[in-house]
């Protein structure tokens, strides 16, 4: 029972991290109709920014607070230099150009920060464990990720559903031209949304930094998971991204936690433990395929 609770929490924590990444993607997808493969690069660079600023200020919180505006600046710069030229192009052009950006950023990081991975120490105030229930300890840092992730998710929900900017975002997602015709500076809105997505990606990157290691290409694999999430959830839907992120988080964690035991009933222990992570990944893609066959535009996507 305790094990089940802990694994569920791990699943929520992973889901929230991936939601942060997927939220920016689904917004740029939904509003600008942009396939941005380089979103994972923003996640990676966000983590490296955090490492630099944490080393510089000697404080996790200060470093994180400096890394976020830096990521915003980077996001805005990328939008202004490359992305805005891609909005009107077809998806193939976007895939090609942002694939080029991935190569560029991976190499840039290697030039600036060197080929070796970096690690960030756990901030001391969340280094221990806390009892989530009497007698059930849980790492405080992971719990902090859940709290921050949940707060940001709520904030985003508030932003999208309750504010004027959110209204424009939703309006832009359903009809860009109409919003532009009504006198809204759609270019500025796009830049802001892209920057916001970059901040979320960097936040995910810097929060993941102490538990995963910071390395080149760290954004690439998780980016594909983020794509899977927004495709399951329905492109453009923040709610869909949240639900799908939770589903994928749970599948991943439970796949890793329980599949090895299942496999051991008919495989050797060594073979089972090596196959299990692969199988939990495979499960995610099977779920995605099933959802798309059932609903070709995702769980919460707009039917055409």
């Amino acid at each position: 029972m305790e094990y089940l609770i802990l694994q569920t929490l791990n699943g929520i924590q992973l889901g929230l991290l991936m939601f942060l990444l997927a939220a920016g993607l689904t917004l740029t997808f939904g509003i600008m109709d942009l396939v941005n493969l380089a979103h994972g690069s923003l996640y990676m660079v966000g983590a490296y920014f955090a490492w630099t600023f944490i080393a510089w200020t000697d404080s996790f919180v200060l470093g994180a607070l400096l890394a976020l505006p830096a990521a915003l600046a980077l996001g805005v710069a990328v939008e202004m230099v490359v992305m805005r030229r891609l909005y009107a192009r077809d998806h193939l052009d976007q895939v090609l150009a942002t694939f080029g950006l991935i190569l560029f950023f991976n190499e840039l990081v290697r030039v600036v920060w060197g080929p070796a991975g970096k690690s960030v120490a756990l901030p001391s105030f969340v280094a221990g464990t806390i009892d989530i229930m009497p007698g059930v300890p849980y790492p405080a840092y992971r719990f902090a990720i859940i709290v921050v992730g949940a707060v940001v998710a709520l904030l985003l929900a508030w932003l999208v559903t309750r504010t004027r900017m959110g209204m424009l975002i939703r309006a832009g997602a359903s009809n860009r031209r109409m919003v532009g015709a009504l006198g809204v500076d759609i270019g500025l809105l796009f830049t802001l949304v892209f920057g916001l997505g970059a901040v979320f990606a960097a936040l995910a990157g810097l929060m993941a930094a102490p538990i995963l290691s910071i390395k080149i290409g760290m954004g690439d694999d998780i980016l594909i998971l983020a794509f899977v999430i927004i495709v399951i959830g329905g492109i453009g839907s923040v709610k869909g991204a949240f639900v799908a992120a939770m589903i994928v988080g749970q599948i991943d964690i439970f796949g890793r936690a329980y599949v090895p035991d299942l496999l051991k009933t008919f495989l050797s222990a060594a073979a089972a433990s090596s196959a299990a992570p692969a199988i939990s990944q495979v499960l995610i893609y099977v779920v995605m395929a099933a959802v798309l066959v059932w609903r070709p535009t995702g769980l919460f996507g707009q039917r055409s």
Partner: peptide, 13 residues
């Protein structure tokens, strides 16, 4: 690849 990447962007554009 730091040159090759931007080259791809230019090709796409």
């Amino acid at each position: 690849q730091i040159v090759f990447g931007p080259l791809l962007v230019l090709v796409a554009l």
